[in-house]
Amino acid sequence: MNFKLKIWRQKDAKSKGEFKTYEVTNIASDTSFLEMMDILNNDLVHKGEEPVAFDHDCREGICGMCSMHINGHAHGPETAVTTCQLYMRKFKDGETITIEPWRSAAFPVIKDLVVDRSAYDKILQAGGFISVRTGSVVDANCIPISNADAEESMDAAACVGCGACAATCKNGSAMLFVAARVSSLAKLPQGRVEGARRAKAMVAKMDELGFGNCTNTGACQAECPKSISITHIARLNREFLAAKLKD
C-alpha cells in the first residue's frame, strides 16, 4: 500500500509549526500505524533529515504514551484502540492521512507530535491516591468488595492517561480523566475515607492547570481508546457536590 502523509512538524515549543507532506510506499497491510511511521523515519534518516518525533512505547495499547491525532480523530478513525493498535489495513490504498499532535492548551507541543502531558501527573498528585503507608495494612481478605463494585472500579481504572479526552473536548476539559480516577477509588471501601477531599482537590487542580469545563458533549467517551464511560463523570459530579455541601 502507498500513502501520502500530511504531518505536523514543529522544531520545539517556541517555534512555529507547519504541515509537511511525505510519501510512504510498499507498506504491508498488516503493518501497524507506528511501524509505518518507523519506516518513514528510517527513510528520513537515510536522506539526512530529522525523523518525525512522536511518543510511543509499549505498542500494545496499555502504556498510554502514543498520542496522535489522525484524520481529525484522537488515535485515528477506529474506536476503542490506541494509535499503536491501529493497522494500515484500516486505511485506503493511496489515501492522504493527516497527522497532528494533541491540540489542547494544557498540553503544549514539545516537538512535532510530542506534547507535554505533565498536567495529568499534577492532577493525580493533588489527590489521586489512598494515603496508606507501606506495610501498615490489614490482610487483603479483611476488605470484602462485591464483584460488581470491583468490576466497576476496574472499568474506570482501565484509563491509560493518554490525554485523548482533553485533546478531543471542544472545551479542553479533563473531566473524563479525573472522573476515571475518582470513580475507581470511590467504588472501593478503602477509597471512601478520603473521597471528599480527593474530589475537591483534583477538580481544583484541573481548573488551576487551564483545563476547560465539561458541557457533557460526550466527545471524550467516543474518542477514549479504553471506552471509559461518561457515567464516571456523573459519579465525580456527585462526589464533588457532596463534598462541597459538607464544607
Partner: peptide, 17 residues
C-alpha cells in the same frame, strides 16, 4: 495486602473475597 489497601481492583469472587 499492600496493593488492596492502595485500591488495586483485583478480581473478586461473588462473596467479595
Amino acid at each position: 495486602d499492600q496493593c488492596v489497601a492502595q485500591g488495586v481492583p483485583f478480581a473478586r469472587e461473588y462473596g467479595g473475597l
